[in-house]
Amino acid sequence: MSDAVLEVRDLNVDYGLGDDAVRALRDVNLTLHRGEVLGLAGESGSGKSTLAYGLTRLLPPPGVVRSGEVFYHRDGGDPVDVLRMSHAELRRFRWAETAIVFQGAMNSLNPVHRIATQLTDVIKAHDARSTRASRLDRARELLSLVGISADRLDSYPHQLSGGMRQRVMIGMALALEPKVVIMDEPTTALDVVVQRQILRRLVDLRERLGFSVVFITHDLSLLIEFSDRIAIMYGGRIVEEAASARLYRDPLHPYSQGLLNSFPALRGPKRELTGIPGSPPDLRAMPSGCAFHPRCPRATERCGVEVPVLGVPEGRVQHSDHRGRTVACLLHPVHDNGF
């Protein structure tokens, strides 16, 4: 697709080396389009965060990318493989093209430096010719962008509330006007009200600045509201991908159905909430066949033997919001592998 900014191709990530390695990501394919919000949902340990770290080469040891490609499409240039950049290239690429907002709102800021220092050092690192005054102006601008008054520049992180810190992090992510912002559970540590404020601001900013977002969360209800497309992960694989409205109305994979049934709908008739029985799979001892089959209410014998391939489901009307819809489930025969 021509409007892709980030393309993940057959990404495999292991923790550890050799035979004892835990396979945290298996053959993940994902495309992020220009200006869209792509949601990534799944239980703990499904590989959401590993994917975020893997495609930015920030995997903490012993994590290693075993194989795969991550193409970043520059404006008017050839796509570059992030995983094959030199250290210097990677340093220039980071934050300038792809910024990240991390899970821990509380610990993402260095406790011993002022907000101003932390907002400006990234500008300085990428633009050595900028002056101190221009960097401070930019920092002020960034804070106002996320609704924090400029006099907070001289504050230390411990003087800000959790919500403010996370907004500072979002402001910081936008410092170099990146085309992609990856958000790894950016609001998990915050209360619901603050969560809403931050997400609303994020949506505003995205409309104004036009960056793409990869939004990682275990909160599927949040994604349905905020994202354009959703990819569901299970056991290190993407099991279903669809436009969010479509996924909400017509989930194909039994796991997606289970996730959707585990929170209440705002409108419509009351229905009983059902969770998904069982617990997430142990990555060291994955079930054979489809990883979800031991917990799947609709599993057949075939599911324990055959690994389903992610592909475009057959027999579905090729509706406009069916664009890019894929699923990996034996219940839904697929045309091809989707690419």
Partner: peptide
């Protein structure tokens, strides 16, 4: 986390290590 953030910001290795 803030050290990971510093890496992600593309700061120089030296700056991350010292600062």
């Amino acid at each position: 986390d803030y050290v990971t953030v510093a890496h992600a910001k593309g700061l120089s290795e030296r700056r991350v290590m010292v600062g």
